[in-house]
Simulated scan of single mutants.
Amino acid sequence: MATAVRTALGMGAAALATLMLTPPAARAASAGDPVRRPSASPAPSPTTSASPSPSPSPSASSSSRATPPATPTASPSGPRVRTYAYGSHARQIMDVWWHTAGPRRPIVFVIHGGWWSGGDKKYMTSITRSYSDLGYTVVNLDYRLSGDAAWPAQRTDVMSAVNAVRRHAAMFNADPSRYVLLGFSAGGHLATAVGAYGDGRPGLRGVVGISPPVSPLSAFADGSAFGSKEQQKLRKAAIKLAGGCLPAKCPRVWSSMEVPFHASAGDPPMLTIHSSEEFVPPYQSEMLKESLQTVGVPMVVKTMAGTQHSAPLYREPGVAETVQAWIVARLGRVAPPAASPAASPAVSPPQR
Rank of each mutant, 00 (worst) to 15 (best):
A2K: 06
A4K: 07
G10E: 15
M11A: 15
G12Q: 15
A13R: 15
L21M: 14
P23F: 11
A26K: 14
A26I: 11
A26R: 15
A26M: 15
A29D: 14
A29E: 15
S30H: 15
D33G: 07
D33Q: 15
R37W: 10
P38K: 11
S41I: 14
S41H: 10
S41R: 12
P42F: 11
P42M: 09
S45A: 11
P46R: 07
S51K: 04
P52F: 06
S53T: 12
S59P: 00
A60W: 01
S61T: 15
R65P: 00
A66K: 11
A66S: 05
T67N: 00
A70D: 08
P72M: 03
S75M: 04
G78E: 13
R80P: 00
R80G: 04
Y84G: 02
H89S: 07
R91M: 05
R91Q: 08
R91I: 08
H99I: 05
T100C: 00
A101V: 08
P103S: 06
R104D: 09
R104C: 02
R105P: 03
W116G: 01
G118C: 01
G118L: 03
D120K: 02
K121P: 01
K121D: 02
K121M: 04
K122Q: 10
Y123Q: 10
M124Y: 03
M124V: 02
S126I: 06
I127E: 11
T128P: 01
T128M: 03
Y131I: 05
S132E: 05
S132G: 15
Y136D: 05
D142A: 12
Y143D: 06
A149E: 12
R155K: 12
R155A: 08
D157I: 12
A161D: 01
V162W: 00
V162K: 01
V162E: 00
M171Q: 13
D175Y: 02
Y179H: 13
H189Q: 11
Y197E: 12
G198P: 09
G198H: 09
R201G: 01
R201S: 11
R201E: 12
G206P: 04
I210S: 03
P212W: 04
P216D: 10
L217M: 13
A219R: 07
A225C: 02
G227E: 08
Q231H: 03
I239P: 01
G243H: 01
G244V: 05
P251M: 06
A263K: 06
A265E: 02
G266E: 00
L271Y: 07
T272E: 05
S276D: 08
F279S: 07
P282G: 08
Q284M: 14
L288A: 10
L292A: 13
T294D: 13
G296I: 14
P298H: 12
P298N: 12
M299V: 14
V301H: 04
K302C: 04
T303L: 06
A305Y: 09
T307P: 06
Q308P: 03
H309L: 08
S310H: 07
L313M: 11
Y314C: 05
P317Q: 14
Q324P: 01
V328A: 12
R330D: 04
P341H: 09
A342Y: 04
V347L: 10
P349T: 12
Q351T: 14
R352T: 13
